[in-house]
């Protein structure tokens, strides 16, 4: 568990990310997709913080903002105490080296005609991480780290299987000695037997290299396995943040509870108490008033329909945005 005294490596404060919607009619007020709406959290060095939620909850948008791929509508993102929106050119370059990303399919964006050696070389030369003479050694070291044979360096992307590609994605991220890696659905496309290999590798690397992960996923079992702290998002808002065990042992938000109870467990001995939530996720263009979850919440009251709950601390590390977090029992 992370100790409390550490200064965060990443601090997101009141992040809002709105995207304008194309007008359909002439006399229409300008509308926005409220993809991320006032999100605050921090990540401590050497830990894994996960953002989990269903499609459209804003988890990937948050990740993109942290990578500075989109400029936030409002709010700040601080990396080691520095606002990433205000970095100088030189600082930005250093930042781009410190933060790396692993996507679901890292090879979707790669030139299929360049070998792995060329790819890694390019990554290292852009960041200028080391002497050209030492790069060769570093590449071999990277192959060792991610558990691939040395001759992989001479091969082309399409010659690798899904699991190997994800290992290469990790190697590419590690090539520039990053501090923080954003993993956006990094293992979601993999078959379970391969997924387990990659997850173990990521855990091992974290220990060895003292990496920090921001792990974005829809898969709660994976999130549970890898995270120290978990952020649950719904329709652009954080509904609950807690340490791993705390969240799984005593989820306080009805949505978290519903998510947990919806996961099918490969074990015939476990009989789950299922909380049924009906209907679909509402549109983020015109999110429900009050608590955004009230349209699907089995416990919603009039109060929930009108007053938006704050994200509040219910014990020192556990935050929930539900009016009835203390009194609900599932």
């Amino acid at each position: 568990m992370p100790s409390k005294a550490k200064t965060p490596i990443l601090e997101v404060t009141h992040l809002k990310q709105y995207f304008p919607v194309k007008k359909e009619r002439i006399l229409e007020a300008k509308r926005y997709v409220q993809a991320v709406d006032d999100v605050s959290f921090s990540v401590e060095p050497g830990t894994t913080v996960s953002i989990v939620g269903e499609s459209g909850c804003g988890k990937s948008t948050t990740g993109r903002a942290i990578l500075r791929l989109d400029d936030p509508t409002s709010g700040t993102i601080e990396y080691n105490g520095q606002d990433i929106a205000k970095l100088s050119k030189k600082e930005l370059k250093a930042f781009r080296g410190d933060i790396q990303v692993i996507f679901q399919d890292p090879f979707a964006s790669l030139n299929p005609r360049r070998t792995i050696r060329q790819m890694l070389n390019e990554a290292m030369s852009i960041q200028n991480v080391m002497d050209k003479t030492k790069r060769e050694d570093r590449m071999l070291e990277l192959m060792d780290l991610v558990g691939l044979p040395y001759d992989s360096l001479e091969r082309l992307p399409h010659e690798f299987s899904g699991g190997q590609r994800q290992r290469l994605g990790i190697a590419r991220a590690l090539a520039v000695n990053p501090k923080l890696i954003v993993c956006d659905e990094a293992v979601s496309a993999l078959d379970v037997s391969v997924q387990a290999q990659v997850l173990n590798l990521m855990k091992k690397l974290q220990k060895e290299l003292n990496l920090t992960y921001l792990f974005i996923s829809h898969d709660l079992s994976v999130v549970k396995h890898i995270s120290n702290r978990i952020i649950v998002m719904y329709l652009g808002k954080i509904v609950e943040i807690a340490d791993n065990e705390d969240l799984f042992q005593s989820p306080r938000h009805p949505y978290t509870q519903a998510l947990l109870s919806a996961i099918p467990i490969p074990d015939v001995n476990v009989k789950r108490t299922q909380i049924d939530i009906t209907g679909d996720v509402p549109s983020p263009i015109n999110p429900p008033k009050g608590c955004r979850f009230h349209t699907r919440c089995p416990f919603a009251t009039e109060h929930c329909r009108t007053v938006e709950p704050e994200l509040r601390t219910i014990n020192n590390t556990h935050q929930v945005s539900c009016h009835y977090a203390e009194t609900l029992s599932f």
Binding site: Q195, A196, L220, S221, V222, K224, I226, F248, P266
Partner: peptide, 24 residues
Amino acid sequence: KGLLDSIPKINEVQEELTPMKGSI
């Protein structure tokens, strides 16, 4: 057995998963 061991379990704490070696 290997498949079942590869899945991270939601209802228990595991330090490490036991994956199968190799691929399909």
